[in-house]
Design a protein around this nucleic acid. Structure first.
Lengths: 340, 340
DNA sequence: TTGAAAGCGGTACCAT
DNA sequence: ATGGTACCGCTTTCAA
């Protein structure tokens, strides 16, 4: 039961060698006597010597850390993203530090400050829904730390590197798929309207209508934030006109479809049995639902995460000019569910 | 567009002061002239000076980091745990580093090594399901870094600090609840049998039967790992005898109940309509299911996470003797669902 | 009121 | 083949 971390100094003293000889032995420097190397390595292994990363970072002025700021870990999209990021970061010799903003601006600012203190070599950030001021993030770029905006990014901000899934294409596919199944009344249930998170979903919907000569109906579009009450209100708005009720629905989150179906069932809405709907997600729970979406727009969070790491690493290495703003877009898949 | 991180040295040069004066100014040392302090603080703020944490850690020989190793982030139990850990760690002035083992032994060993290099002040670990050798974790305790085993812990290892939810009590409550509703044939569907993760669920089930004078029937007990195929097999085993089919079921994971209900429905099993079941979880998705558990055994991951941090911090501070092994048990709640 | 210097752990250049 | 030393950024004691 020792009590102090094992350092080179300790090993040196034990073996009556200098610190530099110990260091060189462990790194297999050529001009160290073989027998010395053996003695050092043996003791180091026995004591479980692990170099102090703080010391290494201080010396190298390189942390080999990529900072990640995400809204939360409850959303599977983000935890799956982390998996992809972790994988690719490791192959490039980087570690990641994960911070959650909990969709709160102040926490995001604090997380950014902490990562700055950790001297991360690069930053990947999915901004909180409150974020309107970007000073805390611009700070990184000012001192030469590349920032990649992930998934959520304000549309007005063109001067940044971004990695997004192609929600435009996703919505287009879904809408067209429903139209091709004969639907003329395809509704759209969108996310927070003000902040234009990610690529434009709504325009995918609209374009699919137009390209397929289906009339647009303003009554068939509603928006909601992530609040339960508002979700229900939006749903009611879409379906309150029984005469002219939608027969199909595209929603920006699958959960909204579950809510919709439950609501329609609860009020015995005539559209309940026949409504065909598609949303972003593909939650495995769909297999357990009695009435469920006919398809899902699948994003590829792992791939998206890898793309973000790949981009930020290239920026760190100077393989891409920091001022040549990149926009990486990953397409979605339409996953059609087997009839249950 | 600068390019180097802001250091005390930079500020000192800019202001023609010594590094130590700058440092003291920022920390409001009493004997620095007020006007000097102002000049320093003003420039530091303007340049967004953030102390390099690596330098601080090196100097303090304290990282103020708690390392966390978890199997994965897909399980909401763990992400909710992280929330509690994060909260309490912050109030104690600690940061956390999260590592995933992906339930893989080698990855767990690597994560442990990395955390050792980060000189974490304490470690909280939910071991992978492969972990049988604990050398990589014992290493921490050997050099005086306290380790707290979280949720998953091998029952044979008594000489360790642990924080667990009281799955015995949870299963007991659930079983008794079903018995009190008149069930005589309460089945039990358990997890991996060999590795005794966490407090004993099965004994909770058995004790509830005994205390309520309900006969134990070996045919009403089955086990499965986390594998889909085996899940189905275990379910079939429980329900293949139509004559003597269980009328109620307690399962170690709620998802198994979903699988069970789906299976019974698919084969038109006579027990389908009447089966009352309870499992660990309380997934919000229950609200959307047509046939669903009548209650859930709720663990309290946030509280459990807080308890783990609280314990590890006390161990770090020497408020608890490292050799006086603590076992913290958090009770479960039985959450009865409204009839749908 | 300010500054110089040592030291935290490690690396690498320069001596010997 | 090995050791001495400077340095990374920061704090703190001691000296001026």
């Amino acid at each position: 039961m020792e009590n102090k971390p094992v350092t080179l100094k300790l090993i040196a003293k034990e073996l009556k060698l200098s610190i530099s000889t110990v260091s060189k032995s462990l790194k297999d420097y050529p001009r160290i006597k073989e027998s010395t190397k053996q003695r050092v390595k043996e003791l180091a292994a026995r004591l479980n010597f692990t170099p102090d990363v703080s010391a290494l970072r201080l010396r190298d002025r390189k942390s080999r850390i990529i900072g990640i700021i995400l809204p939360n870990l409850s959303d599977h999209f983000f935890t799956r993203s982390i998996y992809g990021m972790e994988q690719l970061a490791t192959t490039h010799g980087y570690n990641i530090i994960i911070s959650q903003s909990h969709d709160n601006y102040e926490m995001e600012v604090m997380a950014a400050a902490a990562l700055l203190g950790s001297r991360v070599d690069g930053l990947i950030v999915a901004i909180s829904k409150q974020t309107a001021d970007f000073a805390h993030l611009d700070r990184f770029e000012k001192i030469g730390i590349p920032v990649v905006y992930y998934t959520r990014n304000p549309s007005f901000n063109l001067n940044c590197h971004k990695v997004l899934s192609n929600t435009h294409q996703g919505c287009y596919m879904a809408t067209e798929y429903l139209i091709n199944r004969g639907h003329k009344k395809v509704a759209y249930l969108g996310g927070p309207k003000m902040v234009n998170f990610s690529h434009d979903r709504f325009s995918g919907y609209i374009n699919a209508l137009k390209d397929n000569n289906v009339a647009f109906n303003a009554a068939h579009v509603a928006y909601t934030d992530f609040d339960e009450e508002n979700n229900l209100m939006a749903i009611k708005n879409l379906f309150n006109d029984y005469e002219n009720s939608p027969t199909a629905l595209v929603a920006f989150k699958e959960k909204l479809l579950f809510d919709t179906l439950r609501f329609l069932k609860s009020v015995d809405h005539p559209a309940y049995q026949s409504l065909e709907c598609i949303g972003f997600g593909n939650d495995p729970i769909i297999a357990y639902l009695s009435s469920s979406p006919i398809a899902s727009i699948e994003e590829n969070p792992e791939l998206l995460g890898e793309q973000a790491v790949s981009l930020v690493v290239k920026l760190i290495n100077g393989e891409i000019d920091v001022n040549a703003y990149k926009k990486v877009i990953v397409n979605c898949n339409l996953k059609v569910h087997e009839a249950s």
